[in-house]
Computed example of a mutant assay.
Amino acid sequence: MNVEKLKKMKGKEKIVMVTAYDAPSARIARDAGIDVILVGDSLGNNVLGYENTIPVTMEEMLIHVAAVKRGAPDAFIVADMPFLSYQTSVEKAVENAGKFLKVGANAVKIEGGEEFGELVQKLVESGIPVMGHIGLTPQFVNRFGGYRVQGKTEKNREYLLRSAKELEKRGAFAIVLELIVEEVAKEITESVSIPTIGIGSGRFCDGQVLVWHDLLGLNPDFVPRFSKKYANLYEVILKALQDFRREVKEGLFPTEEHSFTDKSKGGVSS
């Protein structure tokens, strides 16, 4: 997969994107045939235990992007630019985005609308592919006053449409549409020639993205309405750990099968 192939999928084949934050997850996503792996700054609340994405640093993101690359070296990987890694200056943004490509990302994702058009253009001119992100942008949650669905007012609808067209004009190869009312997401999708990838934005986007922990049911305390739980791995993992604990306490593990003697044949994995 590459930027040009993704762009050509618009209107022909739905794009599937999922977040991943480590090598084992990335390998599974690749083996499942996922088109794009996003190393999201959702790393913060899903892996690092932060309340939201704002505390996530460049150093943390770089570690996890590199891990994802090692797990899926042939996958198309997009790295989220974390809070304040691109807002302070164009020069700093180019430097930070370049760091992601050096550790294995194929592109970066930037939250924000038309106000970041010049920055997107500079990144693209510097050889860094950019995926846009409009609608509910978690890094700006304090400005929005919470996690609210976007596109409900005419003013906001016009801003989102202008932003999508500006990002396209400046060279973005795709745009994530997050928590936008379905009718407006459809209008945006039809107004640009680059793919839109929705999350909580209805049925008419050119693709969909979900967070790893949401779709696999790893967080029983958070089940967003816009997501779908395709498995309940929390319960599966919980039971496995409970069974392990019980067998150790009762002396049922390890058995002879899991032990080595001077007569054992083969290696550790036998």
Rank of each mutant, 00 (worst) to 15 (best):
H258E: 15
V47C: 08
L215R: 00
I34G: 08
Y86Q: 09
E187W: 07
V149Q: 08
R162L: 08
S25V: 09
A93W: 03
R70F: 00
I110Q: 02
G146H: 11
T19K: 01
Q121A: 15
E59K: 11
L216D: 01
M58Q: 06
G11P: 05
Y234E: 01
D214I: 00
E111H: 08
A32Y: 14
E187V: 11
T189V: 13
A29R: 04
L119Y: 08
F140E: 12
T137S: 03
G266C: 10
D243P: 06
R27H: 12
K169M: 07
E247R: 15
E91N: 13
G202D: 09
T88Q: 12
V103L: 08
I37W: 02
G127S: 11
I128Q: 04
K8S: 13
G267T: 14
T261Y: 13
N106M: 07
E182T: 10
G117Q: 09
T53V: 14
L123S: 10
L161C: 09
M61K: 04
H258C: 06
G251H: 03
R245I: 11
A32D: 09
T153I: 04
F173W: 12
E51K: 15
N106R: 05
R70D: 08
S259K: 12
K165C: 01
V108A: 02
S270D: 13
A174Q: 07
Q150R: 15
G171C: 07
I63M: 07
G217P: 07
P24Y: 02
G98K: 10
P254C: 09
P254H: 02
K99I: 14
K14A: 13
P55K: 05
V184A: 02
G44K: 01
A97M: 08
E114T: 05
K265W: 11
G145S: 06
M61G: 04
G11R: 05
L218F: 13
E91H: 12
E118T: 09
L38N: 02
P220D: 06
G267Q: 05
R162E: 11
E166D: 04
D41F: 03
R170F: 01
E4L: 13
G171N: 10
M9T: 11
T53H: 01
G98A: 09
